[in-house]
Amino acid sequence: MSVFSLSRFELSPASATLVIVVTAVGFGLVPVFVRELQGLGTGPATIALYRYAISVLVLLPFLPRERHKRGKALLLAGAGAVVGLSVIGYLEAISKAPLAAVGVVYMSYPAFAALFALVLLRQALSWRTFAAIGLVLGAAALLLDPATLSPEALAALVWAIPAPIAFGFLIVVLSGMGGDLNPLERAVCTLIGAIAGLLPLALYEGGGSVMPSSFNELWLIVLMGLVTALIPQMMYTIACQKIGPIRTAAAGSFELPTMFLIGWLVFGEAFGLVELVCAVLVLSAILVAPAPAAAPEPASRRRAVQAG
Results as ranks from 00 to 15, higher is better:
P44W: 13
G208W: 10
G308C: 15
I286G: 03
S253F: 04
G207K: 03
I165G: 03
G28D: 05
L29V: 11
E92Q: 11
L287P: 04
A101T: 11
S95A: 15
A93Q: 09
L226P: 09
A291D: 01
A299Y: 01
L59C: 03
E269G: 10
G206P: 00
G80N: 09
T190H: 13
I243G: 02
Q241W: 03
F169W: 12
V158N: 08
A79K: 00
I20S: 01
G193Y: 05
A160R: 04
G252H: 03
S253H: 10
G28L: 09
C240K: 05
G138D: 08
A279G: 09
P292S: 07
A251Y: 03
R303Q: 15
G207E: 11
L283M: 10
P212C: 04
L91R: 00
G80D: 04
A291E: 02
A147G: 15
E10T: 14
I221F: 14
A270Q: 07
G43R: 04
L120W: 08
I262Q: 00
A156E: 02
A153N: 05
A114R: 01
A45Q: 03
R8A: 13
A304C: 06
L287K: 12
F9V: 15
L170W: 05
T46I: 05
E92H: 12
A79R: 00
Q123C: 03
G206Y: 09
A160P: 07
I161E: 00
L198S: 05
V280D: 01
F260Q: 02
S7Q: 15
Q241E: 15
C189F: 10
A239S: 08
P183D: 12
I286H: 02
A239L: 07
L149R: 05
A299L: 13
A239C: 02
A299E: 15
P164C: 12
G176L: 12
Q123N: 07
L184R: 14
F4A: 11
G179V: 11
F215K: 00
V21W: 07
P162M: 06
V83I: 09
